[in-house]
């Protein structure tokens, strides 16, 4: 109680009930889903898109051109689905990380996940691996980076949040310098652009195979984490209070870190580094429904899916050539955060 409160009262008044928020976000997601499939160089009427989707689900008689179907289902659908899945994953795991570290300014990236992934991808590109090898390496090294951060912090006598975050910083620096080393030696005409492009994050290369490969694990992890949403409230009270409330905080924290890391690593492995989503979305979620994780977690998931799909639509339609989505999320995320901090609503530690 000697500490300054994290938020002022205004911040915590929730605007919507859980039911309202879920309903509104679901409707928005459906509308945006259809619009996203109609957007692009080859414009398709949203009504035709709707008809084509309904035709996939129900056996309707259809008079839709095959080219249109190819564009909708083979070219645009994988990317749209990926945006929804990745947005949901990054946001839900971001909210979960904020709960277990009891800090509104953290995301899975603080444990070195993104630089680990970047290192893996750069290494794969350098040795001439195809896109599957790149995804696999990115995934494996992102997990290695997180494990390494946890391992380093464990060597301390009493590991706490600060040692864990500092370990994450060390691991991040290590992998970042290795990435620079790779960039320096990479062929500047073929491999360097691939590395740079991967690091900026993009959904343009995603195929249906990628989506089918990551979707089951992502959906199962999202559901498991969702089922643990009440426990996030308990964990956010800190180790001692969680123990006094009959919980095993170390075990619970490990499970939640595992699920969140899996979600983020799988996402990053197919999309490259897309920052700031996991930080920004839970904050907007908190403004909408308050800090209770029973409401915050589902709302962050739906909001994250909507947000990333919207940003990806912008990334591919603002200019004639595609803008890497990681640049856009950072350009939107950082000012938003500066705004929050300037309003004095958050402590830094």
């Amino acid at each position: 109680m000697q500490e300054t409160p994290l938020y002022t009262q205004r911040e915590t008044k929730s605007l919507l009930t859980l039911g309202q928020a879920v309903l509104i976000l679901t409707v928005l997601n459906v509308i945006l889903f259809i619009i996203s499939l109609s957007l692009g160089r080859y414009k398709i009427d949203p009504i035709i898109v709707s008809k084509a989707i309904l035709g996939k689900v129900f056996p309707l008689k259809q008079t839709i051109d095959d080219t249109v179907k190819t564009v909708i289902f083979d070219i645009r659908l994988p990317r749209v689905l990926a945006a929804l899945l990745i947005g949901a994953s990054l946001s839900q795991s971001g909210a979960a990380y904020q709960g277990i570290f009891d800090n509104p300014l953290v995301s899975p990236f603080i444990l070195g996940l993104s630089s680990g992934a970047g290192f893996g991808a750069a290494l794969a590109i350098l040795i001439g691996g195809n896109y599957l090898v790149v995804e696999l390496f990115a995934f494996i090294f992102s997990i290695i980076a997180v494990l390494l951060s946890i391992f380093i912090s464990r060597s301390q006598k009493s590991p706490n949040t600060v040692t864990l975050v500092l370990s994450g910083f060390i691991v991040s620096s290590l992998f970042t310098s290795l990435i620079s080393f790779f960039k320096y030696y990479a062929d500047p005409y073929t491999k360097l652009p691939s590395i740079v492009f991967w690091l900026m994050g993009s959904l343009s290369q995603i195929s249906m195979k990628d989506v089918i490969f990551i979707a089951p694990i992502i959906i199962v992890s999202l559901i498991l984490l969702y089922l643990l949403r009440w426990k996030l409230n308990i964990l956010s009270l800190g180790n001692e209070e969680a123990t006094l409330l009959g919980e095993n905080p170390a075990r619970l924290r490990s499970i939640i870190i595992f699920l969140s890391t899996l979600l983020t690593s799988l996402s990053v492995s197919i999309s490259g580094v897309i920052g700031w989503v996991g930080l920004v979305i839970p904050h907007i979620g908190r403004m909408l429904v308050g800090p209770d994780f029973r409401k915050l977690l589902p709302v962050s998931t739906l909001l994250g899916a909507f947000y990333l799909l919207l940003i990806d639509d912008l990334a591919r339609s603002i200019s004639a050539s595609e803008i890497p989505i990681g640049i856009l999320t950072a350009l939107i995320g950082t000012p938003f955060f500066i705004y929050l901090i300037r309003r004095g609503k958050y402590r830094w530690s």
């Binding site: 109680m1 500490e3 938020y7 800190g238 209070e241 800090p291 209770d292």
Partner: peptide
């Protein structure tokens, strides 16, 4: 059950 001496302020739950 316990009432701790110092409660570390967390998220603004009701």
């Amino acid at each position: 059950s316990s009432v701790p001496q110092i409660h570390k302020i967390s998220f603004p739950y009701t």
